[in-house]
Design a protein around this nucleic acid. Sequence first.
DNA 1: CGTTATATATCACGGTCGTTATAATTACAA
DNA 2: TTGTAATTATAACGACCGTGATATATAACG
Lengths: 196, 196
Amino acid sequence: MVNHKERREEIVEAAWRVIEREGLAGADLREIAREAGYTTGVITHYFRDKRELMTSAFGLLVDRSTSRMARASAEAGLMEAMAQVLPLDEERRRETTVWLALVSASLTDPQLAEGLRLRYRQAREAMLPMFRTSLEEVPREDHEDTGDELLAMIDGITVDALGDPERYPPGRQLALLRRALARLGLPAGASAGRYG
Amino acid sequence: MVNHKERREEIVEAAWRVIEREGLAGADLREIAREAGYTTGVITHYFRDKRELMTSAFGLLVDRSTSRMARASAEAGLMEAMAQVLPLDEERRRETTVWLALVSASLTDPQLAEGLRLRYRQAREAMLPMFRTSLEEVPREDHEDTGDELLAMIDGITVDALGDPERYPPGRQLALLRRALARLGLPAGASAGRYG
DNA sequence: CGTTATATATCACGGTCGTTATAATTACAA
DNA sequence: TTGTAATTATAACGACCGTGATATATAACG
């Protein structure tokens, strides 16, 4: 028998690669199937329709990102946790490209938006306790505002870096993140990891 | 005779409305023509192909935004200028939705990306002198970094607010912007305009 | 007025898409 | 092994798309 979960993830990962390579417009089922090494029949067997495949793609994306963040938060710190969702290398660039494509598409697709919102709330709940201790180091600030400022900064750096990679190499993204953390009174950590 | 420039803008504005309503995927030429009150023959008469229509749509978008920012910068201040590109009302929400859709599409469409990059550089050059005087009020900071931090904050608030409008009503967007400006040592202005 | 360029409309072509039905293949159980 | 369910492949349907060819209508002008 086939492990349904693993097969679905296999197909989803193929979808990621196609979306990153050719965009959402070019991510048709035939191309995704070809990328995965199957035919469209397999996709329709494991996913009700294209929308379910896309929401699953977003869901796994968020899961992978948040678990990476949780690990980095425990092993290193807030700075390193946030760096997990910046387009610093090929894997993260793929993730953020797919993230932006699906978020953009969801703005005019209520059903897709609903699926994404569910996943996003899970991610938010997983992230909040992660830097709760850091936020409590700034007791006089409004934690809600500080958290949203940080998230906005992350999303903004990501969008700008995706649109103009030459202007925003990894080191520059991290410098902007470090400045933002320092300005917010949060621990920015000492190391920038392997990205300098 | 027909004023080519005006007719092109008329069609572009129809394209905006369709993109905002049904996304880039649903913005086919027949629908755009219907929205504009013409037929597809008219569109192909004024635009070489769909891509030229889309880059023109982005170009006019940037032009309108930057001129609004320039006016607000002169009449009010930096805070009000930045607020011109946040999704605070229907017009700005339309603009930012189209902006995000086209930026996302450009990530996997080199030709579209080139067209967008040209327009973006024009916008950057038009904006820089606008808040140069404000940036010089923080002489000990790196102006390049401060400007990029501000832009990232604007883009981040925009993306987050588009994705979750209920969580980011106009007042909250402005509050985040005001906090960011204050933190950067920039004049945040006294008034929040008509958005409270 | 007649002629020519411009503007707009109509239509069909080739191609692609998501979906569905169905056939072929494989794996498992009795 | 035989039968049944799961898995994969194939094919076709209807709909839609961008583009370009062509026809009609309108305006400009000698």
